[in-house]
């Protein structure tokens, strides 16, 4: 089994936390992992991406081959489209629909949604709103993760265990908020 995931967003939106949780869950299974990150200049409000590769066998490349990604998991809708060359024909786009507008020429969101709906497999939802509704505003990224786990073959328990382990030092309240966000995300899938 091998899962190639492109995580996408804008610097500071929390895609590396998603990567950490998925990576933790994969390691608990005894899987291998490679995760290429973006550091440095591009983090400053620019587009960021992480190539996350999980497999029960050895992984060679740190980068995902174009046309091979099982999923584009994005916390911002336009950013999901930026990595279409990587997506396999039967791959999934799972993305937050809430635009992050920090450029003057951001396209009409409806056009962005139309482009996303052109892909065979996609899930589009307002993760910001969902997180707000369940009073876990800062866990938008975990809602997005929740929507993805079924398609990545992870159980709720596996991801919940990883969330608990990773957030435990930040206190019970934060763990609970993230677990709620996870459930809300799973309900979307």
């Amino acid at each position: 089994m091998k899962k190639d995931i492109i995580l996408a967003g804008v610097g500071g939106q929390g895609i590396l936390t998603i990567a950490t949780i998925l990576g933790h869950a994969a390691l608990n299974r005894g899987w291998q992992l490679k995760q290429a990150e973006v550091h440095g200049m591009s983090q400053r409000g620019g587009d960021v991406q992480s190539h996350l590769r999980l497999s029960d066998k050895d992984i060679h490349s740190d980068l995902i081959t174009m046309g091979d990604a099982d999923m584009i998991l994005s916390v911002e809708p336009m950013e999901a489209l930026r990595y279409l060359p990587y997506l396999a024909a039967d791959g999934w786009i799972i993305t937050n629909s809430k635009p992050f507008v920090n450029i003057p020429n951001y396209p009409n969101p409806e056009d962005v949604y139309t482009e996303i709906s052109k892909t065979t497999n996609h899930l589009l939802f307002d993760a910001d709103q969902i997180a707000k509704d369940i009073k876990a505003t800062r866990s938008m990224n975990i809602v997005v993760l929740g929507a993805a786990i079924k398609h990545l073959g992870f159980s709720e328990q596996e991801i919940a265990d990883s969330i608990s382990a990773i957030f435990s030092r930040k206190g019970e309240a934060i763990v609970e908020a993230n677990l709620k966000a996870l459930k809300a995300g799973i309900a979307l899938s």
Binding site: V10, R44, G45, G46, M66, L81, L84, G91, I103, N105
Partner: peptide, 20 residues
Amino acid sequence: PSKYGKDVPEIVAGRPPALC
């Protein structure tokens, strides 16, 4: 054979790094 998904739609705008 080189694999490739789909082209990036034209509406996708560049998002260069910027001062915070």
